[in-house]
Write a protein that binds this DNA or RNA. Structure first.
Length: 194
DNA sequence: CTTTCGATGATCT
DNA sequence: GATCATCGAAAGG
């Protein structure tokens, strides 16, 4: 089958210069690790140019600077003053688009994630963007880092995955776009998909 | 099962 | 001063 369905490090398959919706769907099934800890990406959301719900909608700022940097880098921001959230920057540089990583199925370093999260229940480790950030030990120092170098590592799916999509969660503007993507049938989604 | 609400602080107007 | 790409506990059916 095609490269995108073969196991291995990301070399060609992931094209972060594509639209965030395309990248968000393509990311489902990939494994993301930070310092060797992480799991399979089972839920994402796309935030695009000219998207009122996107942090980049009103142009570059101190917080969203990474969104206007090169694609294939991390955009990490503090949500509600509490939760660090992880995004992957996409599109051409300086366009301000990204994919929010909303949930992982834990596979690597579950003991570390359990300690960081204060629970051993697999579903509570990384099902939700705030939980992902805490499980991966993220903070501001990860903002802007490239995803193809340590501490980040991306591993392609070992087989074809089936995705589902729906409207995004937790936003009040541009609520109609079906830019939330998930691994069909996964029990690690932050919320069910149609 | 569902809904509601407080926490908590950076960011933006 | 208001908003916020959230979470967890509490209360209600």
């Amino acid at each position: 089958m095609a490269d995108s369905t073969r196991q291995g490090r990301w070399a060609r398959p992931l094209n972060f210069s594509a639209s965030p919706a395309a990248v968000a769907r393509q990311l489902i099934g990939w494994t993301v690790l930070v310092g060797g800890v992480g799991g399979v990406i089972v839920e994402t959301e796309a935030y695009d140019v000219d998207d009122e719900a996107s942090h980049g909608f009103r142009g570059p700022s101190a917080r969203n600077g990474a969104m206007f940097g090169p694609p294939g880098h991390a955009y990490v921001y503090l949500s509600y003053g509490i939760h660090w959230c992880l995004n992957f920057v996409c599109r051409e540089a300086s366009h301000g688009a990204a994919v929010l990583i909303r949930a992982l199925q834990p596979t690597h370093g579950m003991d570390v994630m359990a300690q960081r999260r204060g629970t051993t229940q697999p579903r509570l480790l990384a099902s939700g963007p705030g939980r992902v950030g805490q499980a991966l030990g993220l903070d501001r120092s990860f903002d802007g880092l490239p995803l193809d170098q340590p501490p980040f590592e991306l591993i392609a799916p070992s087989q074809q995955v089936e995705t589902a999509s729906g409207v995004r969660i937790g936003i009040t503007k541009a609520v109609h776009h079906p830019w939330r993507f998930g691994l069909a049938g996964s029990t690690y989604l932050s919320k069910r998909l149609p």
